[in-house]
Amino acid sequence: MGNTAMPREIRLSTTPTPEALAELRLGDIVYLDGLMYTAREGVYKRALEEKANIPMELPSESAANFHCSPAARINADGSFDLGAVTATASFRFAKWLPEWLEKSGAKLVIGKGGMSSKDYKSYFVPNGAIYLSTVGYGTGALLGRGVENVEAVHWNDELGLAQAMWVIRCNRMGPFIVASDNEGNCLFERENAKIAENLHRVYEGTRPATLKRYGETDDRSDEVIG
């Protein structure tokens, strides 16, 4: 390892107080205790578009929404085996999240890659919610160790294993990284801005493609050559 400073480590409840959330700084490392549930496009569509009744008490039981599908199985006797858990990219769920945060009272959204500061400022901050990113996106085994028990799997018949609502009891589950704060600042945008300063130098000596693509121009009358 290079000569680097270690980030702060914090234990946090999955039903956190506003004070505990206010303490969090971008880049802090968080370990979670309490109940967490998985919800992604399947759950959002079913709860918000089809207006199905959410099968648990939110947010009193859990205020932590994990964007995840676990590597898991449901045994013949109805019990669950869960090996590894890893987050999936959250930006795809922006369509449903404003309504979901309001309806579910979620205070922690846990996933991969975070959202934009615009998302954070427009509906995370007003709902008092914070975004936590998983680390490395491949630490599934470490996160799996933090799962004390799978308490329930809701909507498996309707949505399938990958989209079902898994209710997980966490015991020092982590690590997660604080990727938004209570002002709506975005860790990834901060990092991107630093990296962007160097990009022009890296691109020196390269050239744009001879044949352009739509998307590189929004003018559909453009011939995209040259």
Partner: peptide, 11 residues
């Protein structure tokens, strides 16, 4: 992952 014989990544 190796110690527990569990998948290294959930995906």
């Amino acid at each position: 992952a190796k110690e527990d014989r569990r998948a290294m990544c959930g995906d």
